[in-house]
Amino acid sequence: MELILSFAIGVLTASGIWLLLRPRSFQVIIGLCLLSYAVNLFIFSMGRLTLGAPAIMPKGGFIDPTRYADPLPQALVLTAIVISFATTALFLVVMIAARGFTGTDHVDGKERELP
């Protein structure tokens, strides 16, 4: 399991980084989305992988923490998901506004001069 998930994180990260370095703004936005998946999974995996544990605790009584998934990374990732949505939206708007103003979707606002 761990091997699969770390492989998945690796692939998501690599695709994200590659797109981040591309010249078209849409590529960058997709790259950022992929990177945010990778980062969320990475943070989540810091709490180790727990299969089949109950998500909800009983009302009262003794709690054995080892029987539950680590809640802290989950709480962190939950907010991260919402924030990454917000930043994606902001970036998208900047992207289409820049496209309207500059007439191109190149990240620099102008096409690269050809030699």
């Binding site: 690796g10 990260t13 990778a38």
Partner: peptide
């Protein structure tokens, strides 16, 4: 970069 992150995660 991807390989590095994957290794650390693993």
């Amino acid at each position: 970069g991807g390989a590095g992150v994957a290794t650390v995660a693993y």
